[in-house]
Each structure stands twice: as structure tokens, then as C-alpha cells.
Design a protein around this nucleic acid. Structure first.
Lengths: 131, 131
DNA sequence: TTAAATTCCTACTAAAATAGTAGGAGTTTG
DNA sequence: CAAACTCCTACTATTTTAGTAGGAATTTAA
């Protein structure tokens, strides 16, 4: 099944939750995980990744938590997926080690498909998920 | 990495090979696997699947092998991928068990993306891979 | 100054999917 | 009858995904 990982899915849920919520507040993983019914420890890894990528910022300590660093309308799902699940790369040709050079029309075609997908995903921002 | 399985990739290689080759001939897995540098036993499973889906037909016994049942210009890579790797389903909502009903804007958006991908893949036929 | 609530860090584990391997039965042709 | 095939089914090894676990460091507020 060609699909998005849970990791990306959960990350997306979290970001959408933040996007819909009041700005300027901190949201703790523990509370948010409970609200969204997501596994706490797993979500905290994901949040950490998203912070390293600077889509999120955090404040430690009591009353701390995470918040978005950008406007929801500036965050695309491509960004999120590429961070949490590696790049979109429909066919993995492991850089030219492959023996099927005569078939590498295939590579070109799939690279073009990759680009089309990226374009599609780049155009969908967090705001698209508002009710 | 959001990508096509080896299974789909090998299946595609095999079908492209057949498409490019002389019609009316039988191609054995053993020989073709050698030519394409693909694992013999694995490829034979794949070929069997493709036969069950009726993209291929086969003849048993000495001198036998596989051949395409359709014209290359009628076989899309969507067909191949969907057979060998299950449907494209970017987000797997395991039919409404999910607790995020309030987020199911997500479901709609991803279903639409699925459709767009399917359309893209449906338009690419085996003939696109000729040199 | 201490307790509570948080992020941060790293290592481990369990489950599922993917990518094969293996052996031999049945079929067909020369 | 032997060789060259497909067909069938079961097993295995590897990799990826989806978590769990424990505690250090940080911050706030009582």
C-alpha cells in the first residue's frame, strides 16, 4: 500500500491541532497526545523532529510546550512529509549502481512523477484542513 | 521514503522487457531474470501474479514462458502498481475506526490526492518506456 | 527551595512489511 | 525419457515502522 507513515500522519495531526488553536500559547505533548488519542512518547519524538526542522519552537519546563513558528498558511504538507518520512522518491535507483541503464527512461519518468507529486503536496497548506 | 516496492519495480522491468521484445514469443523467467539481473525465484512469483491478473499469459513446459496479453499501449503503470503493491492510499484511515472525525477534512484531501496520483499513473503506458 | 510539569536525549523492543530462498510437483516438447 | 519450463506452497532473513522506557535537564510557581 503506497501510503504515508503513521509518523507523518501523527505529525500532521499535531500541526493541524496547533494551527487551529490560539496562537501564542504553549501546547504540551502530554496533554495534546491525550486530546488527539496519540501515543505520548511517540508523538514527543515527532515533535522534537519538527522542532529541529524549525516548523515548531518549544519552551521547556512547567507550563512549557510547543508552538508553530510559521503561519499555518505557510506550512505545506510536502514540508511535513519530507521531514518526517524522507523525500518522495517513487523509484529508488540507488544512484546509478543499477544495471538497467537501458531502462532508465524509467528513472526519468518516475522523477517527473515525483515532481508532480511534490507540486501537488506543496500547494496544500495547513489551512486547508480547517473545517 | 515514499516509494514503489521492488516487487512493482521488477514487475515493471519484466513487462517493459516483454513489451519491447518480439510479440508471439514466449519468454522464460529463468532467462529473462538473467538478462535483467533480477532474482529468479522472486521474479517467478511476480510473473505468476501478473498472470493471475491476466496482464500476462503463460505456456508451461519446455519452450514455454510468458507473454503479454494486451498491447503495451493499453497497459498503464497504475495497473501494475495496484496489482503488485496494493492500491494507492496515501492515508490509511482503516475505515472510520479513527478517533479524529473532526480532522476528516484530512481524509477528503488525501482521497483527492490519491485520485490525482491515479490519474497521473493511468496515463503512463508501457510504451512510454521505449527508448 | 522544592515539587510539578515540561522538553530533551538515547536506547531498546515489538510488529509488520518487504524481499527474498527452497524444493519439488505437474506440464510440454523434442 | 530428459530437459526446460510454469505452478504451488512454505519458509526465512532483512528492513522499516511503530512504538516503549527511563531518566537528565530546564522552568515555573507555591
Amino acid at each position: 500500500m503506497l501510503s504515508i507513515s503513521k509518523r507523518s500522519q501523527y505529525g500532521l495531526y499535531f500541526l493541524i491541532f496547533l494551527a487551529k488553536s490560539k496562537q501564542g500559547k504553549f501546547f504540551s505533548i502530554k496533554k495534546t497526545a491525550k486530546i488527539l488519542h496519540l501515543p505520548y512518547r511517540y508523538l514527543s519524538q515527532i515533535a522534537k523532529d519538527l522542532k529541529d526542522k524549525q516548523i515548531l519552537a518549544s519552551k521547556e519546563g512547567s507550563g512549557g510546550g510547543y508552538f508553530l513558528t510559521k503561519k499555518p498558511e505557510e506550512i505545506s504538507i510536502l514540508e511535513i512529509i519530507e521531514l518526517l518520512q524522507e523525500p518522495i522518491n517513487l523509484i529508488d535507483c540507488e544512484q546509478n549502481i543499477c544495471e538497467h541503464k537501458h531502462n532508465c527512461k524509467m528513472r526519468k519518468i518516475f522523477l517527473s512523477l515525483d515532481n508532480q507529486m511534490q507540486t501537488m503536496l506543496k500547494d496544500i497548506k495547513l489551512t486547508a484542513f480547517y473545517d
